[in-house]
């Protein structure tokens, strides 16, 4: 056997060389694509925020449809209104003044699938659903 690369390269037709060139370009593009995408700010992909007030209908809002400047929602509860702030890459809650522990507000922004915000006295739960590229099935916390 023992065919050197240069001999093999010289031996193949011009058309085959073009095919090899395209294959190499696509392979390289595939390899660097995730890094370039991340560098450009990533993509919310299929991530969606689920807003689940107890006893009321669930809302599902895809992050892909959220404008850069974000979108705010008022979600009423037994002890007051929550302000739900949604950005293309995450969501957070501002608790009503009368919420004693403000656990939901202290949670801050959530940005990964499976992450949750729970407002206990105001009976509101918010979480993110979607494909997860972290390689984890869940986080113990």
């Amino acid at each position: 056997m023992g065919i050197s690369f240069s001999k093999w390269w010289k031996g193949i037709r011009k058309g085959d060389k073009i095919v090899v060139g395209f294959v190499l370009i696509f392979a390289l593009a595939g390899a660097i694509y995730p890094f370039v995408w991340e560098w450009l700010g990533g993509d919310p992909g299929d991530l969606q925020v689920v807003i689940n007030p107890v006893g009321a209908e669930r809302q599902k809002i895809p992050l892909a449809g959220i404008p850069e400047e974000g979108k705010n929602l008022i979600v009423p509860g037994p002890i007051g209104d929550h302000l739900v702030e949604i950005l293309p890459d995450g969501v957070r809650v501002i608790a009503p003044e009368d919420d004693p522990l403000k656990i939901c507000e202290k949670t801050g922004w959530i940005r990964r699938p499976g992450a949750t915000i729970v407002c206990v006295p105001n009976q509101l739960a918010i979480w993110l659903e979607g494909s997860d590229d972290s390689g984890l099935d869940g986080i113990s916390e």
Binding site: D137, G138, S140
Partner: peptide, 27 residues
């Protein structure tokens, strides 16, 4: 955050569970 699992996933791999970093603000 209280997690329990049973069995292997469909690809034959185990479940992978992270541990919360208590001081990371991004949880």
């Amino acid at each position: 955050g209280d997690i329990r699992v049973h069995g292997l996933k469909e690809d034959g791999t185990p479940w992978r569970i992270g541990i919360r970093d208590p001081r990371r603000e991004d949880r």
